[in-house]
Write a protein that binds this DNA or RNA. Sequence first.
DNA 1: ATGTCGTCTGGAAGACGA
Length: 288
Amino acid sequence: MDILKIATFNINGIRSRLPALLEWLEREGPDVVCLQELKAPDAAFPINDIHAAGYGAIWHGQASWNGVAILAKGMDPLESRRGLPGDEGDTHSRYLEGAAHGVIVGCLYLPNGNPQPGPKFDYKLAWFERLINYAAGLYNSGHPVVLAGDYNVVPTDEDIYNPRSWLKDALLQPESRERYQRLLAQGWTDSVRARYPDERIYTFWDYFRQHWQKNSGLRIDHLLLNAELAPRLRSAGVDRWVRDRPRASDHAPTWIELDMGAKKEGAKRQRSTLKRSNTPSKITAWSP
DNA sequence: ATGTCGTCTGGAAGACGA
C-alpha cells in the first residue's frame, strides 16, 4: 500500500501553538500539511523546529494576520505559486501552492468576510471569484491536485450544528455558498463529504459559549480533489483530540488518505515510465 | 448584542480580526 496522508489545519497563531503542532505531527505523521492563520511574519516562522520534527516547509507569512504554509515529510515542497492572480493590490497572504510527494497542493485561507454586508464581505466574494477562475486551470492541468484549506464557508445546513444563530454570518450567506458550489461544479470532489455523505462532521468550534464542550461545530475546512486524485480517496477524518487540548486552536486538523499505488497494470507501467523520465529532477530532496 | 481568543501597540489596557 502506498498511502499518502494530507491534512489541513488552521492553527490560529503558529507561535503560540507550536507545541501543539509538533505534538500533532509526531502523533499523526501526516505526509503533507497545509497550515493557515500563521499570524506571524516570514522571519518568525519556526522552521528549525519543523525541520527537527522531520518536515520541510514553504511559507508565506504576514504580521498579525493570515499567513499560510505547506509542510512535507522529509522534503521541501517545490513552490509553484504564491498568491492568487487577479489583483496585484491584494496584500493578504492567503494562497500558497507547491508540489510534494507526487501531488500539487494548493493551500488557501479564504477571507472570513464578517461583518456582512460590507467591504470585508465584498473582499471575500472577490477573492472567491479569483479562486474559481484560477482553480479551473488547476483542475484541468492533468496533474493530481488537492485544494485544501480554511474556506470560511459552511456548504449546507448539514455542515453546522444549528444555523439559527449564524444566519447573518458571512460563512452561511447564499453568496458564499453559491461560490463554493460553483467551484465544486468544475468537477472537484469535497473529499470529507464524499467519504461521509450523511454524517455531521465539524472542523471548527468557536471559543464562545462553550461550543467545543457542546460540540456546536461547523465544517469549514475542506480538501478538494481533482479527477486525477478523487478515485484514490480511501479515508478521511478530523483529529478532534487536538481541539480538546488546553489553549487549542479553534480548528481541528482535517485529513484524507489517498492510495497512490497504481490501480491497473497499464497505469503502473505508464507511471514508472513517467517517474524515470522527469520526476527526480523536479523534486528537491531535503535531509535534516 | 454577546461570548473568547491571539496579536499588536506601547510600555497597561484596548483595538482589531476571527
